[in-house]
């Protein structure tokens, strides 16, 4: 790891000030992606601004159908929440399958959202749930927030404070795990709510998380795995690496989508 200068922010204002004073600063929350990236010198921030100790950014608030999750809420917090399981069982399931129990004790919702790793699970959930991302300066729809591989609409110094969504009527998530590291080589989240059916795919597309609109139309007419019979996904916009070719991932998208719908219907 290269040298870095650590700062512990006491508030969001303090974090913004520290960020403005840094040469090439980065925010850190749980650090489960950033610290390993710094160890391998893929990332070398001059200043590391720790958000983990800021008050009021942690917790799950559920009021009626509205669910709001503070950015510093850990995967373990989500995985242990009975209320979340009741409101959105697939997000609860997802939180239980991020990394391992040790990583889940530190990694946060906000960190995952801001990082937008193409193999991360949450972006698929938030996109399918038509979630709103609340930052220090504005609110954005997930459709506008996730812009590409490791890319979001966040401006310099802008911090994710929370995410908010309306609990769906039905939802399902299924991922094909990398056999060694268990991250989503392809993950599909389906959600059916007042606004219709949305299908979001992570781990497969070459521009990060995206929506499968053809599947959404078929499922809007008939919300069952049968509706996806015969649907194919073009490999032209899929990632390809030593673990899975573009063609393989394109097929996985259909298989995972069918399983996710079956799960949603069976719940």
């Amino acid at each position: 790891m290269y040298q870095t200068t650590y700062h512990r922010a006491s508030s969001l204002e303090d974090a913004a000030k520290l960020h403005a004073g840094g040469d090439d600063p980065k925010f850190v929350a749980g650090g489960m992606t950033l610290i390993p990236a710094m160890k391998t010198r893929l990332s070398a921030p001059s200043d590391l601004i720790d958000l983990r100790h800021i008050d009021g950014m942690k917790g799950i608030r559920i009021s009626g159908q509205q669910v709001e999750i503070g950015a510093l809420t850990t995967h373990a917090d989500l995985a242990q929440s009975k209320e979340l399981e009741k409101a959105c069982h697939s997000l609860h399931y997802m939180a239980n399958h991020v990394g391992d129990p040790l990583v889940r004790h530190l990694g946060t919702m906000g960190g995952c959202v801001a990082n937008n790793d193409p193999a991360q699970d949450y972006p698929a959930a938030l996109l399918a749930l038509d979630a709103t991302i609340i930052t220090t300066s504005r609110e954005m729809k997930a459709d506008d927030f996730f812009t590409g591989l490791f890319e979001t609409a966040l401006e310099e110094g802008e911090i994710v404070k929370a995410v908010r969504f309306t609990a769906p009527d039905q939802c399902g998530y299924e991922k094909f795990r990398n056999p060694a590291s268990r991250y989503a080589m392809t993950g599909v989240f389906v959600a059916k709510g007042a606004g219709g059916v949305r299908v979001a795919v992570t781990g497969a597309g070459d521009n990060g998380v995206y929506r499968e609109t053809e599947m959404e139309e078929k499922l809007a007419a008939n919300f069952s795995a049968d509706a996806l019979e015969g649907v194919t996904v073009s490999p032209s916009n899929m990632m390809s690496d030593i673990h899975a070719s573009a063609e393989y991932r394109a097929n996985l998208v259909v298989v995972m989508a069918k399983r996710a719908v079956a799960k949603a219907a069976g719940h």
């Binding site: 650090g31 610290i35 390993p36 990583v103 004790h105 530190l106 590291s181």
Partner: peptide, 22 residues
């Protein structure tokens, strides 16, 4: 590289990987 767990300690009562935190 955060995979093996030989470095697990408890931080404020919860198990974490001490190779992945400063």
């Amino acid at each position: 590289t955060s995979q093996c767990g030989a470095c697990v300690v408890h931080l404020d009562g919860k198990a974490i990987k001490s190779c992945s935190i400063l």
